[in-house]
Design a protein around this nucleic acid. Structure first.
Lengths: 141, 141
DNA sequence: ATGGGTGCAAATCGTTTGCACTTGC
DNA sequence: GCAAGTGCAAACGATTTGCACCCAT
């Protein structure tokens, strides 16, 4: 099924005038097959694991290109290297367990609305935003 | 007045067992006198401007120390070098004008509450969070 | 006096880039 | 065929660190 998604992306990219190289096709598949939040090195490792000869430099260049095409989104959690996720899902924010490093997703329509209101009140419109909750498992005592 | 604040901080730090060196005293004053969001290089420049001989390495080390003492907070906006702000004010989030780079502060009690609820529902408690609105001035047309 | 703090320069780490070589269209 | 894409290794920019010296306590 992620193969199907990868094909869709190939067509979308091609009609956007982006050349479909062997490396890009391989990375599209790796990304489509990932449901977590890998960083560049991890994506490179996954591509290598599948025998796709892709240099790390190309991974970086491709990530930038795919982001510009709106195919993926860049996540920059505190201090750690940038992570990436497919952009096909609906908008969501992130919650990071600071003890385990686990990244969870959530959405809250009310928060979204409030943000827009705040910006509007000050005469601005939101281009994009970042909401991250750094959390710790609640200890029951 | 920021001089008064600097003195307060000196005492607080000393009783926390942090040695009060010439460099740290100078940086405390620079920070207390800043009401914006300077990065390490900028703080270094401001310290130099006041004739405080402080190396950039020490600026970095001091920022880390002051953060650990809860005196300042680290801000990491997209891509740019980390910025810092005094931690004495009440909690607030940031709105960044992506065209001018201007950083504004805001608070919204309802958003804070909603965040806590979301975390609680998933069995977590928030240790800290990050909410940034990247905005653009609303064009009246 | 002594252990923490500092300056300097070198090292780190994620990421970007110059250049000569490939390759998709 | 040719501009766009790639690999490699070198360059980058922010930050950190090893080490010899220094100074608050």
């Amino acid at each position: 099924m992620s193969e199907k998604r990868a094909k869709e992306l190939e067509n979308a990219l091609r009609s956007a005038g982006v050349r479909l190289t062997r490396q890009r096709a391989a990375l599209l598949r790796v990304i489509a097959a990932s449901d977590d939040h890998p960083d560049a090195a991890e994506l490179h490792a996954r591509a290598e694991a599948v025998g796709a000869g892709v240099s790390l430099a190309t991974v970086y260049r491709t990530l930038t290109t795919l982001q510009a095409q709106g195919v993926i989104e860049k996540l920059e959690f505190q201090g750690e290297p940038a992570r990436w996720e497919a952009a096909d899902q609906k908008h969501h924010d992130h919650m990071i367990d600071i003890d385990t490093g686990a990244v969870m997703e959530f959405t809250n329509e009310r928060i979204e609305r409030l943000q827009a209101e705040i910006a509007a009140e000050m005469g601005y419109e939101i281009v994009h935003h970042r909401l991250e909750l750094y959390v710790r498992r609640r200890r029951r005592d």
